[in-house]
Design a protein around this nucleic acid. Structure first.
Lengths: 191, 191
DNA sequence: CTTATGGGTCAGCATCGTTGACACAAATGC
DNA sequence: GCATTTGTGTCAACGATGCTGACCCATAAG
């Protein structure tokens, strides 16, 4: 299964009016770049993301929390010891917006802040047991959704999904993603 | 680098893979269903969707509109002649929330409402030329993003991406998606 | 010692989602 | 033919989550 259709036909790129209707699927050159296919991608992203987030939202409502809380729990869980600054970069929100969500999470004992060892201005974030437990409950919901989608689609499709999703990101997001994927327990974030 | 105990325990807790009891895909391992892989999926969806929507947001800000406006323009453009009720189902929001966005779009001449032929209570929605032009400008932005991702990933990956995204949706969303993919039911422009 | 940086916080505002209640015209049922 | 249901609009109030501007503190760096 060859991937990589690097050859870019300028005609297709510029959305030259492709024939609709009886488009042969056999050839599968760069047909997947037709306008209709790209519009479909918009739809897929909308519905997919909408339903993916919806499953966790149900639980959040019961806890009087919002999606913003979930995002914090998720990324702090992903990267225990993360700095506030890095978290802000990941979420792409302002300090004030984060504060409004983070503060209650700390007060309610879901997240702990500890001064950085090398830089005591930092407040390194981590989940408490309580926070980890909640994050896990939220994860279990989405896990079901993702697992079903992955299992039905199969490994090859999953690999393709990953490639496309990475491609949708900007360079900055790709770097942030690497941060999350790294194994080191306490990545030496230099400043 | 001070060691972070919480990081270690969290990492350990996450380590174990657990192949679930479903029938294995013929001859293939299910490693892509490990917890770490599923967490990665969460990250990918977050960053991917975030950056995908961000490109259009820039333009929207200049026009004093929000993402909600874009969604309406998109789906009305996808389905000219769509009823208010169907649009509500697609967006999964309330009549009131839609009204706040739709009303200005109509007043500013981006969308037109025409009484239904068979049911005159309905207000069938369609884009005006002005609306179609705006929707196209927004689309062009996202088109670049999707096109790049698709081209870099290749046809096989794109097919996989589609399969996974469909799998993430609930049944209801899948039905709605079919509605959008159906042959255009006339009612307006098509480039 | 001075300045830059990581982080917090107050005040106010915008967007976009919610519920509840009510209005009205047209379709539909009996 | 009248009662009910349905499709849509709308008012009022509230909640979650973004934003900007301004200012503070503690610590790091030069």
């Amino acid at each position: 299964m060859g991937m990589n259709a690097e050859a870019d036909t300028a005609a297709l790129r510029r959305g030259a009016a492709e024939p609709q209707g009886a488009a042969p699927v056999a050839g599968r050159n760069l047909l997947f770049l037709r306008e209709e296919e790209l519009r479909l991608a918009q739809d897929l992203l909308f519905f997919g993301y909408r339903d993916f987030t919806a499953v966790a939202d149900q639980l959040l409502v019961e806890l009087n929390m919002g999606r913003a809380h979930h995002r914090v729990l998720h990324f702090v869980g992903r990267r225990p010891g993360i700095t506030v600054g890095d978290l802000l970069a990941i979420l792409s929100i302002t300090k004030q917006s984060l504060g409004r969500v983070l503060q209650p999470l700390v007060e309610d004992g879901y997240v702990v802040q500890t001064p950085g060892a090398s830089d005591r201005r930092q407040r390194l974030l981590a989940l408490t047991d309580k926070g980890a437990a909640l994050e896990r409950r939220l994860f279990e919901r989405q896990r079901e959704t993702i697992m079903r989608a992955y299992r039905e689609a199969g490994p090859t499709a999953v690999e393709g999904f990953r490639r496309v999703m990475r491609g949708l990101m900007g360079n900055e997001a790709r770097d942030l993603l690497k941060l999350l994927e790294d194994e080191p327990q306490d990545g030496g974030r230099r400043r």
